[in-house]
Design a protein around this nucleic acid. Structure first.
Length: 507
RNA sequence: GGCCCGUUCGUCUAGUGGACUAGGACGCUAGGUUUUCAUCCUAGAAACAGGGGUUCAAUGCCCCUACGGGCUACCA
């Protein structure tokens, strides 16, 4: 096999959603698995849909997901330019070749004319297609004389170049994921290959670029499967049949509930991000939320996406990028669309929260602490993170699970007060406070032993004392081992908090 | 409407004709651990879309139906 070269070829029409990122990921995994190149090509042939900032967004997203581009606009490469709008002349050349060898023709029909034909057909409950059965009655170079065509072109009449679809031929294609796919050309239409604005459509640009850039495998979304036959014929028409890349069409990512593929709006509606990173809609205050800003680790994000429509064939689920590269194969990609599950995404992040080096989590948590103007030693923060990471899905949850290590509670959870703060609690807490303040070697164990001894001596019941004490220290009924907290904050602070609580908790 | 692709627990999936009493994970339910909440542990409920073939044998192969998805632009 010649060198593996794959491309991710998005168009800069807005933010890339996670389906697009997954396509990029699968391309990347496949390339790296086989020691090949991962190319980023920007398909901006539709100038009417170009969105400012979209290309940068795509690059930033891939970077965040650790998908390193080998060749592209920023990285350069031998096969540039990597932006289709800068390759006009190339496409024009091949469009002309297609006309010369009879696979393409000029069509002068106006958009209005075609619209009316479509409407007319619709009124008769049929569908208009520009193809073998209708092209004879339309204004194109198949019906016009050479002189007429030349004259129209010389007069700058707008034209497109269409593919001349052969009649009734069986095209047999191979797809790595789906196996054999057959299409009869009679069901196809004469697609526009070259637009009147001087730029090619996807079909031509894609085939030409993939060939010129020596792409070995085209891995793309399932929405392209219907045009695969056209692309096959194009390779043949251009004389590249023997160097055709292999194709793999990925299943789509579907909405968590309801019908259809995952779309932009699903995120807001169901409260989970649909985009890798935040996207600020140009000329608007709208923001589409991203996984990065929502607190997902790139490792978790990539892990989650990889398992949407793929798995290693055993029971492993937590894998990092280089393990994924090792295990990846297109044959293991499933054929059917995958419904996206936001709960599982959270679970992946929880797994990575436990697995990532403690320093990584600490560094991210430090940013949050700095925002709250909290100063603490690296050592202390590390200890705290060790204690609370297991109960957190996101770094952003760390604060809620650990604020009591840094500061005395400012309020006391009403529900817990109601349930756990009894008539005699203040009295008990005074006793506990006195016992604790007498301990000379104050730590988790000595404090624990002292309180337990007190409880046993007075036959008080563990819960009664402990729950009230937790309320004093934490301000709520939840949290890690109470005596670990007490050790961390120290004797003086513990005593202070008990006094504070007795004073402030109102029954 | 036409064309193409698909269909295993609610969801993501394992499964490549006998290994299936159909496995794992998320979620859910119950129990355990804990001073508490969470984590964690254990257990449980939960699926081969339906119908025909082929075969000694079908979740697996073929056909039909149903359902789902995609495409059907001078968009990608």
């Amino acid at each position: 096999m010649s060198k593996v070269r794959v491309r991710f070829a998005p168009s800069p029409t807005g933010p890339l959603h996670i389906g697009g990122v997954r396509t990029a990921l699968f391309n990347y995994l496949f390339a790296k698995k086989h020691g090949g190149d991962f190319i980023l090509r920007i398909e901006d042939t539709d100038q009417t849909r170009f969105v400012e900032g979209a290309q940068e967004y795509i690059e930033e997203s891939l970077k965040w997901a650790s998908l390193i581009v080998d060749e592209g606009i920023k990285q350069g490469g031998k096969y540039g330019p990597y932006k289709q709008s800068e390759r006009r002349d190339i496409y024009k050349k091949y469009a002309n070749i297609l006309i010369e060898n009879g696979w393409g023709y000029y069509a002068f029909d106006t958009a209005e004319k075609l619209d009316s034909l479509r409407q007319e057909a619709e009124a008769n409950k049929s569908v208009f297609t520009y193809g073998p059965n209708t092209r004879a009655n339309l204004k194109n170079s198949l019906n016009l004389s050479k002189e007429e065509v030349d004259e129209l072109i010389n007069k700058n009449t707008a034209y497109v170049i269409r593919f001349k679809t052969p009649k009734n031929e069986e095209i047999i294609m191979q797809d790595i994921i789906r196996g054999e796919v057959r299409v009869n050309t009679s069901t196809l239409d004469d697609k526009v290959l070259f637009k009147s604005d001087g730029l090619p459509t996807y079909h031509l640009a894609n085939v030409v670029d993939d060939h010129l850039m020596k792409i070995s495998h085209v891995i793309r979304g399932e929405e392209w499967l219907p045009s695969l036959a056209l692309h096959f014929m194009l390779y043949k028409a251009l004389g590249w049949e023997n160097e055709m890349p292999k194709f793999a069409h990925l299943p789509l990512i579907l909405k968590p509930t309801g019908n259809g593929k995952l779309s932009k709006r699903d995120g807001d509606k169901m409260g989970f991000p649909v985009f890798p990173i935040n996207w600020n809609v140009p000329n608007s205050d709208d923001i589409y939320k991203g996984y990065r800003e929502d607190g997902y680790f790139p490792e978790a994000f990539v892990n989650m996406l990889a398992f949407l429509g793929w798995n290693p064939g055993d029971e492993r689920e937590i894998m990092q990028l280089n393990e994924l590269i090792n295990e990846f194969s297109l044959e293991k990609v499933s054929k059917s669309g995958a419904r996206f599950d936001p709960d599982k995404a959270k679970w992946y992040n929880h797994q990575w929260m436990q697995k990532l080096p403690i320093a990584t989590i600490v560094n991210e948590f430090k940013i949050i602490l700095a925002e709250k103007s909290i100063n603490a030693s690296e050592q202390k923060i590390t200890k705290i993170v060790e204690m609370v990471r297991e109960r957190s899905n996101f770094v952003s949850e760390l604060w809620n699970n650990s604020y009591f290590f840094f500061q005395a509670p400012t309020e006391y959870d009403a529900k817990t007060v109601k349930k756990k703060w009894k008539q005699d609690s203040p009295e008990l807490m005074v006793s506990v406070k006195n016992i604790l303040s007498e301990i000379s070697n104050f730590n988790r164990d000595t404090a624990h032993n002292a309180v337990v001894a007190y409880i046993e001596k007075n036959e008080l019941g563990m819960g009664k004392v402990m729950n009230a004490l937790r309320l004093c220290i934490v301000g709520a009924g939840a949290g890690p081992d109470l005596f670990s907290i007490i050790e961390m904050i120290g004797k003086d602070e513990t005593v202070k908090r008990i006094n504070l609580a007795i004073e402030n908790i109102k029954k």
